[in-house]
């Protein structure tokens, strides 16, 4: 039996809740996110997301579930370098009919919805939107990534240390924007960070070491999690 990376007795996150999850590097936070996203299935136990036991789904069904219901923001390198800003934002709608449908209902077309979200995230400058994503600042890139996570109104938004590459000022701005958008579409937000200064604005703050019963091996990167 391989040693577990994470072992959680029970964790419940409510619909529409904004949860802050903090923990040191290598503690298994990213693995938990992979489980939530249906990328990895638990060896034991059950995981229910949006009233569905995703551990019981097949790989293709989990992929579809992720495409339809989850939006992601990563720490860095979020964007596909060869796509434009708007194309990057529209990307999830290319893999999910459900999200494409919702985007069209919202703004008439996927591209229009992408621009609307970018406007909301202070990226309204058309010049900015037409620029290659590699020429954007890190803060701007993260906002594009946030717009991409939010397009098509997924029920669950997962942010994996999205602010760690940002300055303190930008961090707060970014979190505020993300909050506002999640609230507008009533999305659940799971926000992973080791920056405790942000925790105060969330509905709930969890210390990952408290819920994960696997002892943290010192200096080990065995968890496979991004640090």
């Amino acid at each position: 039996m391989p040693p577990y990376i994470i072992n959680i007795d029970q964790l419940a996150i409510l619909r529409g809740e904004r949860v802050f999850l903090r923990g040191p590097s290598g503690s298994g936070k990213s693995t938990l996110l992979s489980v939530l996203a249906g990328m990895v299935t638990p060896d034991e136990g059950r995981i229910r997301v949006l009233d569905r036991d995703i551990g019981a789904l097949g790989a293709a069904a989990r992929d579809r579930y992720r495409a339809d219901h989850i939006g992601f923001v990563f720490q860095m390198f979020n964007l596909i370098p060869y796509l434009s800003v708007v194309e990057n934002v529209c990307l999830p709608c290319g893999f999910s009919d459900r999200r494409r449908q919702r985007a069209i209902e919202q703004a008439g077309s996927v591209a229009a919805e992408a621009r609307r979200l970018l406007d909301h995230l202070d990226m309204s400058d058309p010049q900015l939107q037409s620029r290659p994503v590699t020429e954007l600042s890190v803060g701007q890139q993260q906002r594009v990534a946030a717009a991409r996570a939010l397009i098509g109104a997924p029920e669950l938004v997962i942010a994996d240390e999205p602010t760690s590459a940002l300055d303190a000022d930008l961090r707060q701005v970014f979190v505020d924007l993300l909050f506002a958008e999640c609230e507008r579409v009533n999305a659940t937000l799971v926000f992973v960070s080791h920056d405790v200064t942000l925790a105060a604005v969330f509905d709930r703050s969890l210390e990952f070491l408290d819920i994960n019963r696997v002892a943290l091996p010192v200096g080990s990167g065995q968890s496979g999690a991004a640090d």
Binding site: R66, L91, R148
Partner: peptide
Amino acid sequence: RREMAILRSVGARPRH
């Protein structure tokens, strides 16, 4: 590989 991981995160299946 990172590009592929991004695509996977937005819903691309391995066959995509």
